[in-house]
Structure formats: structure tokens, C-alpha cells
Nucleic acid binder design. Sequence first.
DNA 1: CTGTTAGCGCCTTCAA
DNA 2: TTGAAGGCGCTAACAG
Lengths: 344, 344
Amino acid sequence: MRVLKSRLKLVIENPPTLYDVAREAGVSLATASRVLNGSTRTVNEEFAERVHAAASQLGYTPNLSAQAVARGASSNVALLVSDIADPYFSSIAAGVIRAAEREGLVVTIAVTDRKAAREIQLVKLLRGQRPRAIVLAGSRFTDDSDRATLVAELDAFVGTGGRVALIGQDELPFDTVPIDNSGGSRLLAQALVELGYRGFAVLAGPADLITARDRTEAFVGALPQHPVAVVYGDFSRAAGYEAMSALIDAGLEGIELVFAVNDVMAVGAMAALRDRGIDVPGRVAVAGYDDVSTARDVTPALTTVRLELEDAGEAAVALAIGGPHRQLAPAAVVLRDSTPRLSH
Amino acid sequence: MRVLKSRLKLVIENPPTLYDVAREAGVSLATASRVLNGSTRTVNEEFAERVHAAASQLGYTPNLSAQAVARGASSNVALLVSDIADPYFSSIAAGVIRAAEREGLVVTIAVTDRKAAREIQLVKLLRGQRPRAIVLAGSRFTDDSDRATLVAELDAFVGTGGRVALIGQDELPFDTVPIDNSGGSRLLAQALVELGYRGFAVLAGPADLITARDRTEAFVGALPQHPVAVVYGDFSRAAGYEAMSALIDAGLEGIELVFAVNDVMAVGAMAALRDRGIDVPGRVAVAGYDDVSTARDVTPALTTVRLELEDAGEAAVALAIGGPHRQLAPAAVVLRDSTPRLSH
DNA sequence: CTGTTAGCGCCTTCAA
DNA sequence: TTGAAGGCGCTAACAG
């Protein structure tokens, strides 16, 4: 660590400016600008060559900030996620980045840590970049005290020509790439009933996240004649482990299947069950949501609901600034070994 | 999808400028600048209040680009990763973002897709942001034809006051947060020999990635008196699956343990073994590298080498622009169920 | 097709 | 302490 390399080039000088390359090439600033960054290229070939030569000789890179001020529009898009290390968000980020790069845009990522206040603070900050678009990928919150502030901030952004795209629940007055939380949960519940399951528990995640709430409510709502225990907690693997442990301590009576509202929690729950020596799916079955990559690699492979997260990320930037994107596949139940058919 | 919400505020106007708030507050531009963004605040309290009031009333957000041009320095750091959806890189990104936010900086992320040319292209592009630092997290390449170009680009950046930090192999003339690929592989090999393993295969990943090469060579080098089969491929789960399949097709004779040079591949290999009905660790043991979260959730739990990737990300920005960071823990072998002690 | 010249939004001497 | 004014690097009319 701390390998502070000593470099020869001790003297640091300012980066070459357009003016420098213009002078070097013996042309005017405007001409240099035109050949290097201008749109309609109507420049003498020889001049153009000289400018290019000078530019590469000087190692010139256009100052994007200066371009942004002059043009009145920057070339980046801002992405807010709850937690970039979470596969749900890193998949979305991959999609956003791919689509943005395709449009020649650069992506700035900030992490909200699932805090409404932090989210607001960050859009305020990122607004300063005058990005072409702001994409909010995190879940909305059930507590809407901060909602108005966020909307106001976003409205101001839109009012000055910015574009906003949300990924998730369509409940803010901005373009949204919907993530189907309710429908998928309902389908999952139906599929599980069809498989013979009758007693359920839900690891519901944080009560203040709409994503979690929607999945929980839709699941429970689709099972009107079945008992469903609900345990709240965090959205993480550790929380899934804890919630499952609590459930085990409470006895597990009547529970044939545990639905964790995301795969990360489901994996934590499976670990808890394993540590307690409880057989999955022999004693209890487990299901998750999202279909993250790990879902098919755990044993038994995890039944879940597939979401096309990368596509959602791409769609968000397409929605905000145009460009191609695939039609979003609907949420689909993926039945795997963690929920075998039950023969009562 | 494509929920194009119609908003009331049809007229889009330009964002309020510092000049606007100054006028609104009845003070000069300079004064407004001082109270809002200036360093040494030596401003009449009443003026200050008026400015703040005007700013929030107008919804003013300082134009970061303009600040950057005027100040000659921006407030962001650029991060290049191979693939943001890969847990190795999303962990690093989490660390980089955390550290950067702590310093009031914003992180721009670009994806190189493990292409040397793309990497160069991206640093060239991102240099245009005049970021405070550029962090390169992807592996270096064995083919050094592009190396000089990259170094030149980075050198130019440093020559103009930029900071560069690499994460990975310390083989470019810039500050580097080392990732211990060789040492960990060696420790792993020793631990495995100690457990009784005698015949090995390595899923070596891409031949042109130094990270992959170092892990492979160190592992092989630590086992001078043992046969080691090496299979090259990609760095992905799918590639791990394929490479393992090839190995199975080839017979698997004499192979007691398969070392995949990263966990993602190892997980793919385990899937291949499972699909072929080959028992792990009964018939072959498996080990990986990185200790991604999934490693402990597969069955059997995967033996691997732990790297503190988030810490590495934080350390990189600390190295580049200062700030606190934890001492990096050395690579550590984590023995799990996929490599039980062998009783020949 | 080329060059001149205002700006873009902000910071920062420099006087007052 | 405050304001006026020049400048940061670049773009985009506007003449030539």
C-alpha cells in the first residue's frame, strides 16, 4: 500500500486548451472548435488535419465542464441507487451505463443507503451537474413526509429542461419504468398454492419501503384463505438470516413455505435454516424475488420471480433521453428446487 | 412502460443563476458567491441571510460545471471497472463511492468490458471531466502493446495535476492499491496440500488478464511436485461452467481439486459438476478466489481467498486524494466445505 | 469556409 | 466588508 511513486514530470502545468491547439495549428479558435467538437463539419481539409495533429501532439482533451457551460447542457446522466453492491442495483446500473455509453453519455452514481433524506440531498447535489437525466432506481418510501420535497426538487429539475426517470413503483409524477412487484408476488403465490402449499410466512423487509410492502401485500392478498405470518426487518442477507431465526424460534408451526421479498434475504434465510439443521425444502420451502444470479447457485436452487433488471436500466435512459431499448419482459415466476410440488 | 406523464409546468426556463439570486437578494454577484460557495465567509449576516433566502426561494443550485471551469478543478472522481454487475467490481465501487462522498466528491463510473482499447478510450473521455482522480480497478493486460498508450494518457493527466490510483497489480508507474493475487493463491495451494490434495486443475480465466495469470501461475508455482491441468476461458460464470465441462469431458483423471481463479467461475464450475452428477467435494473439490458473498451460500460452501474489496476501493481514493481509510487486510484463505480434509 | 466576438455561470483579484 | 471587472475554456452567432 501507499506506494507513492515518484514521477519524473515534477512540474505540473495546465491542460492544453482549445486555444493552445488553435495557435499550434495556426488557425482560429473557432476553426479548431469546429473540427474538434463542432457538429456540422465545414472545414478545409488541410486545416482540419493541422488541428488534429496539433491536438494529438499536445494531448488535448476538450474540457467537458467548459463545453457544458458554453452549450448549456452537460453530457452525463445521474443515477441514484440504494446500494451499489446489491446485485439488484448493480444490474440496473449495468443497464443504465450501457445505454448511456451508447449515447455518448457518462454516468454519475450516488448511493442513498435507503435514506429518503439522503436521496433528496443527493438529487440536489447532482442537479448541480445539470445532467441530461436523473434516474432514481431505489424504492419509494411509505412515509411520504419527504415525498413532497423530493417531487419539488425533481420538478424544479424538469422545469429547467432536465429529464427524470424512475425505476420501480409508478407513483411519482415522472416517467417510470415499472418494476412489477405486486403482479409477480401474486403469480408466485398462485403458483405455490398450485404446488400444494397451504401455510406461509413472509420475510417482509423494511416496512418503510414500498417495494417491500407491495411484494408483501400482494403475496398476502393473493392468499385470502391461508394463514400468513409476516416478519419485518432489513433488506439484507443478514436481516433475512435474523428474521428467519426469529421465525424458527417462534416455532414454525403451520408454515410450509417462507417467502422472502428479495433473493438476498432468501439466501440469508436459507443459511439460517441450514445452521439450525432444518431441511429445505423438506421441512420448509423457500422462495425469493428478483432472480439474482445467486438464486440458481444455492442448494436447493431458489424459486423466485425473474425481473429483467439490466433491461430496466436501459429502458430508463431510453425513456429519459431516447435511444433503443428492448421491450421489458414481464415479471415471471421461476420455479426451482426450493419449492417442490407438495404431496400432502 | 413509456408512461409519458404530462406535467403542468409546460414552459421550461433556464435554471436560476447566481446572478439571479444576487439580484433577488439585492446584493452583488460577488457577495452571493461568497455566501453560497466561497471559502472564507466574511459577509454581513443580514446579507448572508437574504442571499440564502433568495437561493432557496429560487431553488438555486450552483452549476458545478461552471464552478469547475472557474476554479479549474472539478469535484468528481472517475472510476473504471470491467463490469459493474460483477460483485468484485461492485464491491470496489461501493468503497470508492463511500470514500468519495465522504470528501464531497461525486463518482463517475465507466465500464471497460475488459477491453484495453476501450479502457484507453474511456480515460481519454473522462479526462475531459478534469476529475480530481481517476481510479482504474480493472486488471492490467498481459499484452502490453496498449500499455504505453494508457500510461501516456495517464501521465498527461498527472502532468496537469490529476491523480491516478490503480487497484490491482502494481505494475504501472502510478500509486496502486495492491490486490494480492499471487500470495493468496500460494497460501491457498499450501492449505490444500496440507489438507491432502495431490492432483489439481485450474480454471485459469482469460490468458490476457494479469489478475488471472498471476493467480494461475502462483497456484501452479506453489505445487511444483504436483500435476496441474490448466484450462483457459472467460472470467464469467458461464465460462466457468464451460471450462469445467471441458475438463469433465477430458476425463478428470488424477484431478482431486479444481481451482477456479475467481468465485464467479467457481460457482459456474460447481453448476457444471452438479449437472453432470459429479459429487462435490466427494469426487472433486472446488476452490475459488475473491470471497464474494455467494461463496458461502452455495452448497457445499466454497473455499476461497478473501479480499477486502470495499476497503480497497476506499483506500484507492484515500491514496489519490487523501482522507481516512482502513489498513488493508491481507488476502486470507477461507476454508469451507468444498475442500474437506482428504483421507487417502 | 474562416475569424471575431459575445456570451455561458461562476470565482477572484482589485479597488473602493 | 462589498462591488466591479477580468478571466476560466468553450460555443455560437455574426460578419467577412
